[in-house]
Nucleic acid binder design. Sequence first.
DNA 1: CTGAAAGCGCTTACAG
DNA 2: CTGAAAGCGCTTACAG
Lengths: 338, 338
Amino acid sequence: MENKVTLKELSKILNVSISTVSKALNDSSEISHETRQRVKELAKLNNYLPNAMAQNLKKKSTRTIGVIIPAILPQFFSKVLHGIETRANKLGYKVIVCISNESLEKEKDGILTLITSQVDGLIISLARETQTMGSYDHFQMVSQYNIPLVLFDRVTSQIDCDKVIIQDREEARKATAALFRSGCKNVAYFSAISHTSVDNERKRGYEMACENLNKRIFTYTVETNEDFDKFFQHEFIKRSIDGILVADELTAILLMKTALKRGLQIPLDLSVIGFANGTMGEHFITSLSVVDQRAMDQGIQAVDLVVDRIEGRTKEDPVEVSLEATFIYRESTRLISA
Amino acid sequence: MENKVTLKELSKILNVSISTVSKALNDSSEISHETRQRVKELAKLNNYLPNAMAQNLKKKSTRTIGVIIPAILPQFFSKVLHGIETRANKLGYKVIVCISNESLEKEKDGILTLITSQVDGLIISLARETQTMGSYDHFQMVSQYNIPLVLFDRVTSQIDCDKVIIQDREEARKATAALFRSGCKNVAYFSAISHTSVDNERKRGYEMACENLNKRIFTYTVETNEDFDKFFQHEFIKRSIDGILVADELTAILLMKTALKRGLQIPLDLSVIGFANGTMGEHFITSLSVVDQRAMDQGIQAVDLVVDRIEGRTKEDPVEVSLEATFIYRESTRLISA
DNA sequence: CTGAAAGCGCTTACAG
DNA sequence: CTGAAAGCGCTTACAG
């Protein structure tokens, strides 16, 4: 009922000017110690909170970071968001979140909304549709408005900005090689996120490993449960596949589920390695060996990069942070000799 | 480089007043059709975007909803957030997210930050520490500043505001009764979220079911893996427990994992029902029967309630929406006769 | 040490 | 139909 208290009201009560109140609350050395005390007491008494809109308008900084993620349900993205939120808060920044839902249009809207909201910086992982269409015009706004931008995980060389990624290609290559080393004869690649940058990279890494060892390449796009069934009925048998690298966690779990239901033994009949490191893969029986995408670290790094830009600590050239991923050895793979 | 365009600059180029530009962009009927066209064209040409800080300061509305969740990693909360974000966007609101990390202090900070940010409304699920200590003083600020508030899932009768919950007590009672009906002789209650409102309610519902049927009550608080091992070594045998109601998904999974590792059969030797409805329980082998907490719906309802308040569509009295949860029958329970 | 004034970028009565 | 003016709640040179 009593509603917001303003500097003006405090100044009236104390019979001093608004300027004095403002300076006192900001601990300006211009103001006498005694006045500072009086002002602060009254402010606390009235639960005074500044109006950030007014402050920001004046200071031309909102201490807010805008974040656009393609989805929030895959644990990878909620972990990154956790990293972003925690780090941003520690550095005194708020976070406004938009979810693009893998849609180019919603990503565009998100960018406009966030620029309008005067965010000091942006952290974005590209929508699948955006990457499929290769449509990046909407990022011109970002550079025109001179807003520091960090891309993570789903990135593109077509946008000139700071980036955070893991070494997807190299990790996929190593994981594939490890499967062969553990005794697999025919290793396939599964993905439900085709056309994303990370999928391209991982697939390429997989292919490189196969080429190096003169192995045949088998890549599959899977979307529905039937795709899995079909795979096991035909390709799995025909190609004698006994190892699979999977580009995302949920797909890896669905794959293993189908295999187990069909009476296959993991990792004896079929070895599996997944990407990302989620609770689901960790607790599944059999537990999933994974390339840890270091979600939390990606979030933290992205914040550090964007804040460095905002606060002018980075010189001109774009920075690309390529985190070294770690392989987590679990039950879905046979012992791998170093 | 070129940086933000303002009304003033547009007005200079067109040789009209700032007021005219503003009105034209807002499609005011005061302005001639021709001028409107000219203004809009120039605005588009220059990628003009309004400064929301200035607009909000004037209009005293930010069309922003502040959200505080205790955690984001449990899928329940990221699903709710997804519901909130989607619905809020559809209604033209932005979302600022704070994560309290189950800490009272961070919850307080979050509230101050969000009030300072002039959010039009708040959606909060209480931190565990807040509920444990029963410390709700920081909510006085919210009512003093007259900010519409909706509590969801973790709520308290001590705060007078709109609420969204599921009927935790009744659902727990029904689930427990169902376990007995399916043939269980001794049903226990497991929780890793003790002292939260939802835990209290679910425990109470469990107890009611036991009392109704003259069954003994066994409640356990579990935090570590050892707790599970200890349980199976002692209590499980001593009490001949063959059914367990679990207050959260992860605990249910860890419980089943331990049971399966010890060679028990689910649901033959042990039936399990969990709360929340996550991907993990769905895909676990054996899949988990659950009370669906309707995460997405809770988020949507919370937004509707808070927006109704913001836009003055609700009269005085607090509204409590109590969603009917649905039971999802899966493999972790024996067939339950109606 | 204190205060008057200008201004951040908008919107909106009000006058013409 | 257009524009001058006031004001949203702050901050910050500048004067005194």
